[in-house]
Design a protein around this nucleic acid. Structure first.
Length: 482
RNA sequence: CGGGGUGUGGCGCAGUCCGGUAGCGCGCCUGCUUUGGGAGCAGGAGGUCCCGGGUUCGAAUCCCGGCGCCCCGACCA
């Protein structure tokens, strides 16, 4: 690492902390192209872990992977009116190929609904072809005005699920199911609690009937939209003539859904668990769950220590633990500790001559607390135990932080004061009018993150709109957002 | 596109006001000694000072014009 100084603290400058952490942990780097990032091996490894877990969950819910092209005929985008309005301003367009001007410009996909539903129109004829449940892992490009590593880059990696169903009810069920999959993933893998719910029209996906979202609260009390699931209704099937014959011979348009999460989740992970020493990675997503640092002075100590360390490593590998033995020479143990802490490795085992003699290892946890000497005997189950505990502790800590920064039943004044004081989630009554939403955004920068699902709602439900005092039609969760 | 900042070895910076031919810390390489929380010593490698003009005997430095990047805001996953 180039820089050995401490990171800017979160309290001093959250944004600087975030950028420095990414550099320190070697998660990503700026590319020569404005707004684009290079995902470095340490960052990509986390994404791979995410992919692995999510991909399995998609397959377990009946989806198959496929791949659709990067280029989309420009005319495709225009077929769905709201969709083109939403995305046209931020597309990159290819006008030349092979040295010649193209007859029709090609849009670099900002999302793939149009090209996928154009294909579905060919593939779907009968209700027997439904449901069609496809996911793709891909890169997309959105020409954003302002970018931030992982959170909003010009090109980003994601997955997008696209499904077609025979009935509206089935599509709605799928939309909700995948939102649930995301929520489970964020809870159980990322140790990141989320509030789920429906988006208001102003935040709805361009072309969707309804958009649902998972919203997480970062350590600076700004909300991050971590994953979305859209019920597209028949908007795209009408635009792309995706029709099928029903069991009784009638022709109908299919009902579609789409849902996605992106490399933004790596940013979410950083801002949920990171501390002033660097990344804190939940064990289930860590590239290395355990790092072993050997300590020795003499050659004979070196031999014995490395032999013991490698034995521990092999035992853990055999048990399926992702473990790394840091046997680099000429580097003091302390320097290695700092490095692995910055990278967020959950557990560190130190093995020195004393430990070899005692048949023991020293355990240090990334989340703090005293170091602990453990017998080598029974180490493997102990490591699993530690990882499980850390995983649940991280989730609990994140949940507690979120709750400490959420208020319910806010009045207008309380709301204004709260946003002024730094913000967080505010649960409050909402009259349903675009005007109120726009006014709040104008005055406080806060937006409605979701109209929360039932389990997140306040009891009793708020009776009036926090802003205008008219009767409330739904409770809303407000926050300033990324 | 507005506001702010910044471009000098890999990274972080000083030098710019007041022109004289580039320096510090970290990192890197070699060797020796080290190694239980960021090692020490010695020797070394590495720079078109963002770009283009201009002024001058001479420009990192002064003048003019560009460009890049970062941060804050508007747009957005």
């Amino acid at each position: 690492m180039a820089d050995t100084k401490a990171l800017t603290t979160r309290a001093a400058d959250f944004s600087a902390w975030y950028n420095e952490l990414i550099a320190r942990a070697e998660l990503a780097d700026y590319s020569p192209v404005r707004g684009c990032m290079v995902i470095r091996p340490n960052g990509y490894a986390i994404w791979e872990q995410m992919q692995r877990a999510l991909d399995q969950m998609f397959k377990d819910t009946g989806h198959q992977n496929a791949y659709f092209p990067l280029f989309i005929p420009q005319s495709f985008l225009s077929r769905e009116a709201e969709h083109v309005e939403g995305f046209a301003p931020e597309t990159a367009v290819v006008t030349h190929g092979g040295g010649k001007e193209l007859e029709e410009p090609l849009v670099v996909r900002p999302t793939s609904e149009t090209i996928i539903y154009a294909m579905y129109a060919k593939w779907i004829q009968s209700y027997r072809d439904l449901p069609l449940l496809i996911n793709q892992w891909a890169n997309v490009v959105r020409w954003e005005l302002r970018t931030r590593l992982f959170l909003r880059t010009t090109e980003f990696l994601w997955q997008e699920g696209h499904t077609a169903h025979a009935t509206e009810a089935e599509a709605e069920e799928e939309t909700r199911r995948m939102l649930g999959v995301y929520r489970t993933f964020m809870d159980q893998w990322m140790a990141m609690p989320v509030v789920t719910g429906r988006k208001t029209d102003s935040e709805r996906f361009a072309g969707a009937l309804r958009t649902y979202s998972c919203e997480a609260l970062m350590q600076d009390n700004k909300a991050l939209q971590a994953g979305t699931s859209h019920n597209l209704g028949q908007n795209f099937s009408r635009a792309f003539e995706v029709t099928f014959q029903t069991a009784n011979g009638e022709l109908d348009h299919v009902w579609n859904t789409s849902w996605g999460v992106s490399t933004r989740l790596v940013g979410a992970l950083i801002m949920t668990h990171g501390d002033d020493a660097g990344l804190v990675c939940p064990p289930r997503l860590a590239q290395y769950q355990v790092v072993i640092v050997p300590i020795y002075r003499t050659d004979s100590e070196r031999g014995a220590v490395l032999e013991a360390a490698d034995r521990v490593r092999k035992e853990l590998v055999a048990a399926g633990v992702r473990v790394h033995l840091d046997a680099r020479e000429g580097m003091k143990p302390g320097a290695k500790y700092y490095e692995w802490e910055g990278r967020g490795v959950p557990l560190r085992l130190e093995i020195g001559p004393r430990d070899v003699a005692a048949g023991a290892v020293v355990l240090a946890r990334r989340t703090g607390g005293k170091k602990e000497t453990l017998p080598m005997e029974g180490l493997v189950p102990r490591m699993f135990q530690e990882m499980e505990r850390m995983q649940t502790d991280l989730l609990e800590a994140a949940r507690a932080r979120r709750e400490a920064n959420s208020i319910r039943g806010a009045t207008k004044q309380l709301f204004l004061d709260y946003m002024e004081a730094g913000g967080g989630f505010v649960y409050a009554g909402f009259c349903g009018s675009n005007d109120c939403e726009a006014q709040v955004k104008e005055q406080t920068k806060a937006t409605i993150r979701v109209l929360p699902d039932e389990e997140f709602r306040s009891v009793p439900a708020p009776a009036t709109c926090m802003w205008c005092g008219r009767p409330s039609v739904a409770e809303a969760v407000w926050a300033k957002a990324y």
